[in-house]
Design a protein around this nucleic acid. Structure first.
Lengths: 342, 342
DNA sequence: AAACGAACCGAAAAGGCTTTCCGAGAAAGT
DNA sequence: ACTTTCTCGGAAAGCCTTTTCGGTTCGTTT
């Protein structure tokens, strides 16, 4: 089993190994490596060389044990496969990784029991803080106020207003979308969106209608709720065209829906964007860039949500106290599926 | 800043707190909680109750410091946004999370410098092992043999045959695909695939051609390399139909390509699957289930790759030594885009 | 020459836990 | 009653690093 060769077997090199090689005490070695001032330059150099020769890496466990802070955080996601969690996770990992913080990744698979289990495990590892990433924007139960470390909720806000949550501005996203369509001169705008049980669907619709109202307009027909799928986009478009053939823009609740909408529009002989402008939400590259024409979409800036959550957690660890739901603006990405009416 | 209330301020509860509350020594408390036999049942019970009352969580740092093993592993991915990394990562997280192992997530963003930085940081945290997840199946540079902990490469194998790598069987995937098309009675099969610079494209094509040769057949035309995009799928299909209008199956190098292929087939009046069967690779849900008809695809079983890598790392940590590239079979997922010729 | 200060260096403790070893007390045997 | 054998519980070492504080060695000053 265990080979006699290779460094795998040798016990990890410690500070005392370095000290011995450099001919100084452990204390001096530590000071030399950490830039403390009480070491002669020549001695310091000797220690540094010894450390490099042994490729010494200070044991963060011991360091953390002593300091009371470990430089680790827990990233608790509810579904890794969800395409919303990933960018947030990237943003957070990015913000932390740049510093000296390491991230524990835990996937609760949407199960509260498993989530609780992970929280306990993470606390046992003495993480300095937690980020809880949701898979949809609907509020979720708080982990509780009794935790010994700060917690920041990302994407899915906590139900407890005392917690700090960072979410994209869905209402604003709806406003941005309609604003763009209006700027393109569209006035007969329909809205086909997904599952009405999703707060995101409701809020985007709310923002869209508010922006229309500001312009003295209203949607063509009602908001068409359904499912977050291409199939629903196709079906809803068929109905829409039957009832309102004069529609000149379709705002879609997601890029998937938009794909379905565009397919049916093209099949029925409506040109995009000349006759009907189409746009979606999420800015999911694989869908937006592959469609014909490429799809204008509202990007939720999820990476920024992740980064903001990481920064918020940072400052909370440092003692800062914020609470409530903070929203981050979304961003319009214009492609070929929307254009001014000529 | 620091409030006087709440548990955030109070110092974390330690074993000695528990011992004091239970009226025993630290040693006894430890033994009681860890199921050591040298404690009377009644005493043990008292300790356990004390621990629960204080919601005591043993400090894993201290434990790891002592044991020499931390129960943590590093998961080094080269691009988090890549859709291939995520399932592998899920599988690994799953396999570890079930045990008592926590996962450090690091994204090197395809940068060797950053990767090296992360490796050093992880070693400083005394991880018990590393999993390196690539974003494509082409071999990548080894992290080296001199690392003090075992390493397993997933999806992208290491260039060093002494390392252990777990990858999906791309050649086999190609064989499986063609096998299915042959079983459907198709004999005039074309292959439209992606970037020829990807080993996956080459190997799938190789497997497909081998399976055809076994049946005494050959591809319709050459392998059509291009890009991993719907656009290429559309363009290649147009050319294909011009030259070989009698084709009865198109094997696509990815689901994206397949989407493009199916769009053009439908536009040109070819029925899928009656006239032409279509299938892809990757089994990317959002594409396969939304297409018309739903797309038959070869699933790479990436979650299993992740799980296998985790298990391999486990056994390597325990002292087992394996090396070389181990392949995992892929899996056919049949949907509406393929059917027997009637 | 004695004393003082500055500059360096080292011993030791702390941090939380596990484990080994030992002592004390109780139960059993003579 | 005394020894032997168990059973329990405690003291202490050890893991690795940082930091405080006391000590040593110079060079300077009076």
């Amino acid at each position: 089993m265990t080979q006699a060769t290779g460094p795998s077997r040798s016990h990890p090199v410690t500070l005392s190994d370095v000290a011995r090689l450099a001919g100084v005490s452990i204390a001096t070695a530590s000071k030399a490596l950490n830039g403390r001032s009480q070491v002669r330059a020549e001695t310091r150099q000797r220690v540094i060389e010894a450390a490099e020769r042994l490729s010494f890496r200070p044991n963060q466990l011991a360091r953390g044990l002593l300091a009371g802070r470990t430089g680790t955080v827990g990233l608790l996601t509810s579904d890794l496969e969800g395409r919303f969690s990933i960018p947030i996770l990237m943003g957070a990992e990015d913000a932390f990784g740049a510093g000296e913080v390491a991230v524990f990744l835990c996937d609760a698979r949407g199960d509260a029991i498993r989530e609780q289990h992970h929280v306990r495990a993470l606390l046992g590892r003495r993480v300095d803080g937690l980020i809880v990433v949701g898979s949809r924007t609907d509020p979720r139960p708080s982990l509780g106020r009794e935790l010994p470390v700060p917690v920041v909720y990302a994407y899915a806000p906590s139900e407890d207003p005392e917690d700090l949550s960072i979410v994209p501005d869905s209402v604003g996203a709806g406003r941005i979308a309609v604003g763009h369509l209006l700027a393109c001169g569209r006035t007969r705008i329909a809205h086909i969106t997904g599952d009405p049980g999703y707060l995101a669907a409701q809020e985007r619709a709310e923002g869209a209608q508010a922006a229309l109202a500001d312009a003295g307009l209203a949607l063509v027909g009602e908001v068409r709720f359904g499912a977050w799928s291409e199939g629903w986009g196709r079906a809803a478009t068929a109905m829409l065209l039957d009832r309102h053939p004069d529609v000149d823009a379709v705002l879609c609740g997601s890029d998937q829906i938009a794909r379905g909408v565009m397919d049916v529009l093209r099949e029925r002989g409506h040109r995009v964007p000349e006759d009907v402008a189409v746009m979606g939400f999420d800015n999911w590259q694989v869908l937006t860039s592959a469609s014909r024409p490429p799809l204008t979409s509202v990007d939720l800036n999820l990476e920024q949500v992740g980064r903001a959550a990481a920064r918020a957690l940072f400052s909370a660890i440092a003692g800062g106290r914020r609470s409530g739901v903070e929203t981050l603006p979304c961003r319009l990405v214009i492609r070929g599926s929307t254009a001014p009416l000529s």
